[in-house]
Amino acid sequence: MGADVDNAFVSLEGVRFSYGDREILKGVDLSVRRGQVVAIMGGSGCGKTTLLRLIGGQLRASSGRIEVAGHDLSRLGRKGLYALRRRMGMLFQFGALFTDMSVFDNVAFPLREHTDLPAETIRDLVLMKLNAVGLRGAERLQPAELSGGMARRVALARAVALDPMLIMYDEPFAGLDPISLGVIGQLIRRLNDALGASSIMVTHDVHESLEIVDYIYFVADGRIVAQGTPDEIRASKDPFVHQFVYAEADGPVPFHYPAAPMGEHLLGRSTA
């Protein structure tokens, strides 16, 4: 399913990326089809967010090929990239709402920047989007007055304001209470289906994701180490997947940061 490259909306082939000397991604292949919700999972600092930034064109791959909606990102200039981004929505980790604007103005922002619609129409569209995330009543509030879950729902409304073809989520569940977490999860699925869009979600919340996604990639040490549908993942015997799904402290992902043996370290023989 994931290897069905021809029908893919987003596809990555042999993508490598490094910050200076540190190689973050060491050859990643993945693809997302139209209508799919795909989760990219892995431990903190394994390069998940970097992957999202590469697809959004905020970073450029050192090598490999990234295609979004048939465009090779490495060949797009700034204008082409911006034209493509108008059809993308991204939900940042903590919402990234504009703190100097009200909830209404936040959601209206992309509409006002990119369309010449009359104020009436913009109002209607914004209220529709806010209604979809259940926050139509909060239009006058300032971002500072919102709870974490509400802020993220507003940010979600803003991300889908222009009816994107691709929605990206950076840790949509981080720091939420179980109720808000469920609400966001359901919204991600519902909005994706309603818009007929594709969604990519970077997360380490296994259980919530398994409920709503169509396909899952596991990233570790800059590579895709496992992939499959939720059912395949649940049944997987792969030690890495097993450790991740059942939240074990030690396994293929070691508990300890690489270090000299404890004895040497304490006796001061190691200079590391």
Binding site: G56, Q58, R85, M88, F92, A96, D100, F109, H114, A155
Partner: peptide, 21 residues
């Protein structure tokens, strides 16, 4: 302070992702 905080809370990146420089 204002621009720095916007950067810290990813508002600048969010704007960039919305194709607004």
């Amino acid at each position: 302070a204002e621009i720095g905080l916007m950067k810290t809370t990813e508002q600048l990146k969010a704007m960039d992702m919305m194709a607004v420089s």
